[in-house]
Write a protein that binds this DNA or RNA. Structure first.
Lengths: 223, 223
DNA sequence: CGACGGCCGATTGTCGACAGTCGCTCGTAT
DNA sequence: ATACGAGCGACTGTCGACAATCGGCCGTCG
């Protein structure tokens, strides 16, 4: 537990800061499954009292990143392959099919431009081999569309399961996808979005999210 | 905000108590969408300080029952039909298919007996017209199996989405199912569980959860 | 020598108080 | 009469301290 650090950013509550920092520490692997989280230590480390720490821990617990036991503290949890493939990704598909369907009518040209910008950045990141940045852009792309769906619950649930998926791929299933491919697949998805064909979009979303499960060595026979 | 009341039960944390009481108040409709939740009022009402209240509110927020706005408090949220049918129920299906599959190998005779006990109670409750009790037993049946799957995350996510489903059917879609039918469908599901046929179980689970969506007036042409 | 039971440090659960922020009201100027 | 802005009340965000609980240590007893 060193080098976490908390900077003052007035527009965001301490609780949200703490949650973000811990989330990043866990998904990046800096905090590993089994590591204990001691409230007082975290409070000292992040320069706050325990109250925001505790609320952040509750949130991470709901997100499945940690487990808490009464009077016995919290520990970082691992993510199993079964869980990702059979639960988290199918749920992501359910959520995104719904959200993309809802967002379809609401996406403005400005939104589509913004999405194109993200994809362009992905190409740059892919070319530069910046895997972390690529993953961030990946998340931003999906979150942007889901946000436009204006389905508050949907976005919230997506944010709830996404960290675990990210943690899994960052920690336990390293570098399974070709970066250039990731960028290209998002371009294709965006192109389908532009057509406005609802059935085609839902289908593309399903296939797109599913791709995350393709094993490392598999050939890319994308049309 | 009257008559909530908090009793001392030493084995459960205040936070969990508060969450449970508020969850019940919301799903029952005693607290309606749009109602504001003032921490100090709740604390006074429940006889605690604000700390456990706040942590409970964070949890209810994650469950999608309430929304909180920085410095502006929390309010009870409604649940839309779209959300239930296109998001929550499909997610329940995903979770339960996974959990029932995992639980299948682990269910002991004692577990099956316990499930049969629940179903028997459902028949009694159905005959007596006790809808609330029937719904509680319904939840207990599913939760029992999911708990046996020993998939911590799965159980937790189920508990996260279940309150909203319950809130929807209690508040917004009253009495849509024949009580006797509910009991009978659980008996059928349990019978399939007893066979141990994995594919049959997964199929039965999917159909079983889906039934919740059958519109009120629909005929029951179950074989 | 091993099992039992009461202390003790470490850590969480809870509390009451203070600080910060928001929306509204009310006075003021135009 | 209306638009504007300072002041105010209500509430949330945060803090430091106290109480409760857990797990392990250590002495005692069989």
């Amino acid at each position: 537990m060193s080098g976490l650090g908390l900077r003052r950013v007035p527009s965001l509550s301490r609780r949200e800061h703490v949650a973000e920092i811990l989330r990043e520490a866990i998904t990046s692997g800096r905090l590993k499954p089994g590591d204990r989280l001691v409230e007082l230590d975290l409070a000292a480390e992040l320069g706050t009292s325990r109250a925001p720490i505790r609320e952040a821990l509750r949130q991470l617990e709901q997100e499945g990143l940690i487990a808490s036991y009464p009077y016995r503290g919290s520990e970082v949890l691992g993510v199993s392959q079964d869980e990702v493939e059979q639960v988290l990704v199918p749920i992501r598909i359910t959520l995104e099919r719904f959200a993309f369907g809802k967002a379809l009518d609401k996406l403005t040209d400005a939104d589509l431009d913004a999405l194109q910008g993200v994809v362009d950045d992905m190409l740059v990141a892919a070319a530069a081999g910046e895997a972390e940045r690529l993953a961030d852009l990946d998340i931003r792309f999906h979150e942007l569309v889901i946000a436009r769906s204006e389905q508050r619950h949907c976005l919230q649930m997506w944010k709830t399961i996404q960290p675990r998926v990210r943690a899994y791929f960052r920690r336990d299933a390293p570098a399974h996808a070709d970066p250039a491919d990731v960028a290209r697949q998002h371009q294709e998805l965006l192109d389908v979005l532009r057509t406005g064909d609802r059935d085609a979009v839902l289908d593309a979303v399903e296939r797109h999210v599913h791709i995350h499960l393709t094993p490392p060595g598999a050939g890319d026979d994308v049309g």
